[in-house]
């Protein structure tokens, strides 16, 4: 978008929306939308409070545990599926099913099996993230150029060398793409888990604020969450672009 020959920065329209928000809030059109300035004021008030920090640390713990499990399990499983036809044919239908299944329906099962706590939320997060990571790692391995594999063999690479020096790197762009999408899904998963098991993390905080009609508190937490989620996704996209230079040239 250019105005009078001056190029407007990409996300700058968010300022316009912020302004609109402020105006609507000031006009007092609805109780649910307090002015943005008030929300931001509240944001700085609550950001250091123990309740907020507790929610943040619980959420981060669940999020990082879920993401770590997904990556540590998902990438090797995907690579194995890409390398072994039998394993692939046995597992692929299930991976596809869980990828498109409405995973929210499984949360009640997790709650009765693992209790109303952290474990269930971590598993929810993992379930949201892992399938796409598996699928992309698999695709990454399957697209490895055949002559790269033959090159490794003809120069006498040991299986371990071939894996760590060739396959892993050759599949890296796809693997990273899967990890990026997986992590974005994990953010959604951890929040959905907390909403349904609403005694942990931000779930508890939302419950507290909404039952006391603390609107600006609520919006403040939402802004923090959305900003965090967006930053994570942009950071990952940036990292992915850094290896993309060779993705097209393999």
């Amino acid at each position: 978008m250019t105005v009078f020959g001056y190029r407007l920065p990409a996300m700058s329209s968010l300022l316009v929306w912020g302004l609109l928000w402020e105006i609507i809030g000031r006009l007092g059109l609805t109780f649910f939308i307090p002015p943005l300035s008030e929300v931001i004021g509240t944001l700085f008030e609550i950001i250091g409070t123990p309740a907020f920090l507790k929610a943040l640390s619980e959420t981060s713990y669940a999020f990082f545990s879920g993401v770590t499990i997904s990556i540590v399990v998902g990438i090797p499983v995907g690579i194995l599926m890409g390398k072994s036809r039998l394993l692939d044919e046995l597992l692929l239908p299930w991976v596809n099913i869980f990828l498109s299944a409405p995973l929210t329906a499984l949360v009640p099962v997790l709650m009765v099996l693992f209790g109303f706590g952290m474990t269930s939320i971590i598993i929810t997060t993992t379930l949201f993230a892992i399938w796409i990571i598996i699928l992309n790692a698999r695709a990454g391995v399957m697209q490895i150029n055949r002559s790269l594999v033959e090159m490794g063999r003809s120069f006498g690479a040991s299986p371990l060398d071939a894996f760590f020096k060739i396959y892993l790197w050759a599949a890296l762009p796809e693997i990273l793409g899967g990890v990026r999408i997986g992590i974005i899904r994990a953010v959604k998963g951890v929040i959905i888990g907390q909403l349904l098991i609403s005694i942990v993390g931000f779930g508890a905080l939302f419950e507290l604020y909404s039952s006391n009609f603390l609107m600006s508190h609520f919006w403040a937490v939402l802004i923090v969450l959305f900003a965090l989620a967006f930053s994570i996704s942009e950071l990952l996209a940036y990292l992915e672009r850094r290896v993309a230079y060779y993705a097209a040239k393999r």
């Binding site: 002559s147 790269l148 033959e150 090159m151 120069f155 006498g156 020096k165 790197w169 290896v243 060779y246």
Partner: peptide, 19 residues
């Protein structure tokens, strides 16, 4: 019986490591 150090291959599509 398999690839060996006495032979080296030059590939049609180069087979370089892009990274």
């Amino acid at each position: 019986e398999g690839p060996g150090p006495d032979r080296a291959f030059v590939f049609q599509d180069f087979a370089l490591l892009p990274w």
